[in-house]
Simulated scan of single mutants.
Amino acid sequence: MPRSHASLPRLFVDADLAKGGEVALNKDQSLYLAAVLRKSVGDEVVLFNGRDGAWLCRLTSDSKKSVTLAVAEEVAAQTEKSDLWYGFAPLKNDRLDYVIQKAVEMGAGTIQPVMTQYTQVHRLKTERLHANAIEAAEQCEVLSVPTIADEITLERLLSDWPNEHADRKLIFADEGEASSSPVEALSALKGQKIGLLIGPEGGFSDAEREKLRSLPFVVPISLGPRILRADTAAVAAMAVIQAIIGDWR
């Protein structure tokens, strides 16, 4: 997006976006623009929907209950959705929000909660995860909001993997792996579809690690000599993946 538009508010909408169109915001978004940001008729906002790119829009109505905007011009072409699959054991409260936000920023295309033996949270509100993903996309100029998959047990994930992800390798951040650089293992996966699995606080159980390491589609890696929190490990792993075999250019 051109820097001249970078300071404008960005909002995700479900409506189609095309030059000359008009978009009516929902109640919460209308209140945010009209009451919180005090935007009025003629002010500019950037809208995106994950399909049509980002568009400069101007307010044609500034009612706190229903803001409408005229779609003026495209300011960024739609990007392809990332192919990076990211699975994680849900954490508590703010750290769960953090993990979702950072996954969006780091380019995950699908975010999959995975229930393990030591998972701390067993009841997730999918709408909250989706809202966090949208907020992160709005703030970081991401045009393709990741898919938030329904939670799944680790056992079911691994048994279904050969059918659901037949051509995808699963990178497993193994806290029990001898400390080493992940560069060599990741470099060998260039050009292949990949997934990343991060365990809970306390790590995977011995039985889970044994199962993971026995599967032909799983690639265990070390994240170095230091003990990382689960949320830190997620960011570190996605960073090295994107740098070595991902979409960083």
Rank of each mutant, 00 (worst) to 15 (best):
M1K: 01
R3H: 14
S4D: 09
S7I: 01
P9R: 07
F12V: 10
V13I: 02
D16T: 10
D16Q: 13
L17P: 13
L17M: 07
K19Q: 10
G20D: 05
G21K: 07
E22W: 09
N26M: 00
Y32N: 01
A34D: 08
A35G: 02
L37H: 05
L37Y: 05
K39W: 00
D43N: 15
D43K: 07
E44N: 08
V45Q: 06
V46I: 13
V46H: 02
V46G: 08
L47Y: 09
L47W: 09
F48T: 03
G50W: 06
D52A: 09
L56A: 08
C57Q: 06
L59K: 04
T60W: 05
D62I: 01
S63F: 06
K65R: 15
S66R: 15
S66K: 14
V67T: 09
T68D: 00
T68M: 04
L69W: 07
V71Y: 03
A72P: 00
A72C: 10
A72K: 11
E73N: 03
E74R: 13
V75R: 00
A76G: 05
A76T: 08
A77K: 06
A77Y: 00
Q78Y: 03
D83W: 01
L84M: 14
G87A: 15
F88V: 11
A89E: 04
A89K: 02
P90Y: 12
L91P: 13
N93V: 10
R95F: 10
L96E: 12
D97I: 07
I100N: 09
Q101W: 08
A103N: 07
V104Q: 06
V104W: 04
G107R: 08
G107Y: 08
Q112T: 09
P113L: 10
T116C: 15
T116H: 05
Y118E: 02
V121H: 13
V121R: 15
H122Y: 11
L124K: 10
L124N: 12
T126P: 01
T126Y: 07
R128C: 13
A131L: 04
A133T: 08
A136T: 06
E138S: 02
Q139I: 04
V142E: 12
L143A: 03
L143K: 03
S144K: 04
P146N: 14
P146R: 14
A149D: 11
D150N: 11
T153M: 08
T153R: 11
E155K: 14
W161H: 03
P162M: 04
R168D: 11
K169G: 05
A173Q: 07
E175N: 03
G176T: 10
A178D: 13
S179L: 01
S179P: 11
V183Y: 14
L189G: 11
K190Q: 14
G191I: 01
L196M: 11
L197G: 00
I198L: 07
P200F: 05
G203L: 07
S205E: 09
A207Y: 00
E210Y: 00
L212I: 00
S214W: 03
F217A: 06
F217V: 06
V218H: 08
P220I: 09
L223R: 02
R226N: 15
L228R: 08
R229T: 06
R229L: 15
V235G: 04
V235P: 04
A237Y: 11
A237K: 04
A237F: 06
V240T: 15
A243M: 14
G246I: 06
W248L: 11
